[in-house]
C-alpha cells in the first residue's frame, strides 16, 4: 500500500519554530510517555509473573498434606518434603556446574584477554559465545550421545580406585561410591550445565579482565614480573568482584536450566552427596518439564509452586549479583 511514500521523509511535518513555544512539545510529551510507559510495563510484567504464579501456587501451599496423596509424582509426600529434595538437587547440580565452570572460565578469560594474540582474541571470543547460542535441547541430545559414554570410564575409575575403596572400607561411603553405568548421575548433569554456563561466565570475566588499567599491568612488568606474576598482582585483584558477579550470573542460569538435566539425569528425590549414583537427585526445572504434561488438579498447582520457589531463588541470586557489580562500579572508577 505504502509504496509511494517510501522515501525517507517522516510522515510528520518538519517541526517549525514558533515564537513563545518550544518546538515539538506534543511530540516530546507523547514520546516520553511511551518510553516511560514501556519502562513501567517491564515492572508490571515482572510483578505479573510473581502474582500469577502465586495465585496458582496458593492452593497447593495452603492445602492439607493429605491433598497430595493422589498426585502420583509426589510419591505420597506433602508439598515441603517433596520440594526440599528438589531444591537440594537444583542446588547441588548448579554448584557442580560452577565448581567446574568458574576456574575454566577464568582460564579462558585470561587466555583471550592476556595470552592469545590480539588479532585472534576477538574471533576466539565469538567461538565461546557460540556455545551460548546452542539450544539446550541439543545439549541434551549431545549429553546422551557423546558425553555419557565418554565420562563412563572416568567415573568407573573414580568409583573403584584404591583410595575410594580404602575409604569405603574404613570410613564409609564417599561421594564417589557406587557408580553405576550408564552415567546418568548428578555429576554428568552438572558437567553439562557447566558447559552451558561457561560462555555466560566467560563473557563477563573477559570484559572485566580487559578493563584492567594498562598502567597497573605495565608497572608490574616493569618491575620484572613474569606474565603470571603480573596477572596475580594486577589483573586478578582488579577482576575479583567481576568474577564473583559472573559466578552469580552463571548460578542463576544453571538453577533454571531444564532440558539438558531432564535428558541426561536419572531422577530421584533424595538428599545426599552420592554424585555418581543414579536416581538420587532431580532439579526443580527438569521435574516440572517431566511431570507437567500429565499433571492435573492439585498436581499442577504443586508444580507451579515449585516453579515459584525457583523464580524466587533465581531472583535473589541475580539481585545479589547485580548488587556486587554496582558496588564494584562505584569503587573502581572504571566506566
Amino acid at each position: 500500500m505504502a509504496v509511494t511514500d517510501s522515501p525517507p521523509s517522516e510522515p510528520e511535518a518538519p517541526p517549525k519554530v514558533r515564537a513563545g513555544r518550544a518546538p515539538g512539545r506534543l511530540g516530546n510529551r507523547v514520546f516520553q510517555g511511551i518510553s516511560t510507559a514501556s519502562g513501567i510495563f517491564i515492572l508490571v510484567i515482572l510483578a505479573a509473573v510473581a502474582i500469577f504464579l502465586l495465585v496458582r501456587a496458593w492452593p497447593a501451599v495452603t492445602a492439607a498434606p493429605s491433598a497430595f496423596e493422589d498426585v502420583g509424582f509426589m510419591l505420597g509426600r506433602d508439598l515441603w518434603s517433596w520440594v526440599w529434595p528438589l531444591l537440594f538437587g537444583t542446588a547441588i547440580s548448579s554448584v557442580i556446574a560452577l565448581v567446574v565452570a568458574v576456574p575454566l572460565s577464568i582460564g579462558i578469560g585470561l587466555f583471550i584477554s592476556h595470552y592469545a594474540p590480539r588479532r585472534l582474541a576477538q574471533g576466539l571470543g565469538y567461538l565461546i559465545d557460540l556455545l551460548a547460542a546452542i539450544p539446550s535441547v541439543i545439549f541434551g541430545l549431545w549429553g546422551i550421545q557423546w558425553l555419557q559414554p565418554l565420562v563412563s570410564p572416568l567415573f568407573t575409575w573414580l568409583s573403584t580406585n584404591p583410595a575410594t575403596a580404602w575409604l569405603e572400607e574404613n570410613v564409609g561411603p564417599t561421594i564417589f561410591s557406587g557408580y553405576q553405568a550408564p552415567a546418568r548421575n548428578i555429576l554428568t548433569a552438572g558437567l553439562v550445565l557447566a558447559i552451558m554456563v561457561l560462555p555466560i561466565i566467560t563473557a563477563t570475566v573477559r570484559e572485566v579482565f580487559l578493563q584492567t588499567p594498562r598502567l597497573h599491568e605495565e608497572a608490574s612488568l616493569a618491575l620484572g614480573a613474569t606474565r603470571w606474576e603480573m596477572i596475580r598482582q594486577a589483573v586478578l585483584p582488579f577482576g575479583r568482584s567481576g568474577v564473583i558477579s559472573a559466578t552469580m550470573l552463571g548460578l542463576g542460569r544453571a538453577l533454571g536450566e531444564t532440558m539438558a538435566v531432564l535428558m541426561v539425569l536419572s531422577p530421584g528425590y533424595l538428599i545426599n552427596f552420592f554424585l555418581l549414583q543414579p536416581g538420587q537427585h532431580q532439579s526443580i526445572a527438569a521435574n516440572i518439564a517431566s511431570h507437567f504434561p500429565e499433571a492435573s488438579g492439585i498436581g499442577v498447582d504443586a508444580l507451579i509452586a515449585s516453579g515459584l520457589i525457583l523464580f524466587v531463588m533465581t531472583f535473589g541470586v541475580n539481585l545479589v549479583a547485580r548488587w556486587i557489580i554496582a558496588r564494584r562500579a562505584e569503587f573502581s572508577g572504571a566506566n
Partner: peptide, 29 residues
C-alpha cells in the same frame, strides 16, 4: 500398581526413548 516408579535410586529415562537409551547404554540393564 503405580504410574510413577515408587523406588528411589534407580536408573531411569524419560519417555520410551529414554528407557531404550538407558538400557542400551550399559551392560546388565
Amino acid at each position: 500398581p503405580v504410574e510413577t516408579w515408587p523406588i528411589s535410586g534407580t536408573q531411569s529415562g524419560a519417555q520410551t526413548s529414554g528407557m531404550i537409551d538407558v538400557v542400551s547404554g550399559a551392560e546388565g540393564t
